[in-house]
Design a binder for these strands. Sequence first.
DNA 1: ATACTCGTTTCAAGCGCTTTAAAATACGCG
DNA 2: CGCGTATTTTAAAGCGCTTGAAACGAGTAT
Lengths: 360, 360
Amino acid sequence: MRDSHRPRQDAERDPLSAGAPAGRRPRLDDVAAAAGVSTATVSLVLRGVAGPSAATRERVLDEASRLGYRPDRAASLLASRRSRLIGVVMDIANPFHAQLVEDVQEAAEHQGYDVVLSAVTRGRDERRAIETLLDSRCEALVLLGPLAPADQLAALDRQLPVVAVGRPVPSAEVDVIRAADDEGVALAVDHLAGLGHRNITYVDGGRGVMAALRRRGYHRAMRTHGLGDLIRVIGGGNTEESGATAAHALLGVDPRPTAVLTFNDRAAMGLLDALIRADVDVPGAMSVVGYDDSPFSRLAHIELTTVSQNIPELTEHAVAAVIERLDGGRTDHREVVVRPRLVVRGTTAPPPDQAVRAPA
Amino acid sequence: MRDSHRPRQDAERDPLSAGAPAGRRPRLDDVAAAAGVSTATVSLVLRGVAGPSAATRERVLDEASRLGYRPDRAASLLASRRSRLIGVVMDIANPFHAQLVEDVQEAAEHQGYDVVLSAVTRGRDERRAIETLLDSRCEALVLLGPLAPADQLAALDRQLPVVAVGRPVPSAEVDVIRAADDEGVALAVDHLAGLGHRNITYVDGGRGVMAALRRRGYHRAMRTHGLGDLIRVIGGGNTEESGATAAHALLGVDPRPTAVLTFNDRAAMGLLDALIRADVDVPGAMSVVGYDDSPFSRLAHIELTTVSQNIPELTEHAVAAVIERLDGGRTDHREVVVRPRLVVRGTTAPPPDQAVRAPA
DNA sequence: ATACTCGTTTCAAGCGCTTTAAAATACGCG
DNA sequence: CGCGTATTTTAAAGCGCTTGAAACGAGTAT
């Protein structure tokens, strides 16, 4: 049955080399036999451990590549004390996570660790994603924007080092690497207030802790600018759709705000979308600020003013936190807060009334 | 030293395995000891294999959950003949792949298979991604939009069942599940020609086989409409950036085309972007059609007319192809071509000259 | 009684690799 | 040339689980 996948490549193999794999995937002892050494030596050579002589080394390496040997991951994992595996949980539909994963993978590799990805999807919740990782012998977990409650994360952390990226966790247990989201929103408010806006509304991001933090940043910044009375938060979410819904709510408000902050870029996109459909000029009649600096936000027909999280810095700290705990013996809790940066593009401008007033 | 208090002292014959898990992760024999049965029985129960009696079953299950037992994946993998693992290679930055992965994961699970994800990123090429999967005991590979040349894929297929999704592979070896890309482009040309366009340019997608197929579709469709003389292909790519570059090339052409087809939505976005910056009215002065029906293409301020690939159908066939080969003993090659669908949105309209001519 | 089922449970041999202690070999030197 | 030491190699004991064969009662037929 499977034979069809394994045509006679035996022909090109040396039939004399003891126990030449006949169609079967070559194993460590095939290489050992071919090179005339023990499996222990082969293992040592292949992992680059000091010990075997240069001559042996070369011979083993030659035979290994000749046989097309590839170590069996499951077996290595099982046999070795350490897996050197870092599990990463991500939302597969989230481009922000994709960027983080790229960087984490690179950084981890650099430190001699391998990354196991576990995706959260529609039909696969975070719990499942984490469990898979746990079963895979991961030594540590990097959770991108985890949704689980703090106590669950804390419980997890008792099993293995856990670092939550991008979301605050109100607990002194898991490591947290995140951007100062409140500050990010404050930057946006500062920018808008500086342009002359006073009636600035915030489109909320839902129940999450991250949403709460951004909302708090909005509240605080508004008050700082003496705009406490104009604080207005309307329900939203983290999707384009929720942004569009929010737009309609927004347009019904009187007096209509001159600027809107959204929880993230996706919501901003949806909002922008709905505003355009409703013939509201952006930024002429209304300014919009997103959050995340997603790849699409810099496209010219969108040109979204947004808040950028420093991804390289975020991942660098995340991997460092893991490594320190795994290799450095660190046991204390750590929370790193990376400063966000406002990226001003085309969706923000002075408010309309001011524009009218100015010439007068 | 091991803990002295153990769950059950009586029915234990083997004093060596008598330790209770002291801080260490519980193993199969911990559960076995606790339930007073052998590890074999526990294994049977946990995997739902028929044999153990209902009473034993319940006792084992109870103890397992009491101890918080989780099977070690590496060990199970190593010990079992089959891994029931399907490896999926994806481009982590590609939202189209993300959608495919979601569906594949769900479908595979439904068939009792697990999915191992391997991401292609900046610093991790397809080769690496595939190797990881090979080392992980995958029984089959699903490659999303593979870049490797056909002969490499064929070689791979000799090791294990491989199905390439979304890209034609000119070889009668690996299974291929793809959309009829030439037909997709033809649909777009039909649409544009129907609107009255004649000067329709195609922005190419690079060297890939998929790009070649779409390009061919363009050529053929143009000739079908008697527009063979107006065929014009300009260099492009699969990113926003390449689309923007193409736009500039496009604007230098005389006579300027009234419609453009792009290799994919991302290129269309970049193109749209550049057109807007150049004050070209879309679709008034120029119509634009993308390809992929990406989530963002349906946003109102984009409203991209595009060609949709039938994702659910694509993944359904992909998983079916794998299962049939793994479980059904199929050995022959298969190529499934799913028909694309044109999604008309706001970036296409009759050409400008015609609009002028009509009222006259 | 014996033999022969059958349902349940266990034995024990791995899966393919790592790792440690110990053995074999090589080396240096009086 | 023997002995201590450093270098290289290996035997063997697992890692935690699965699995076919064997064992074990307890029925049932003979």
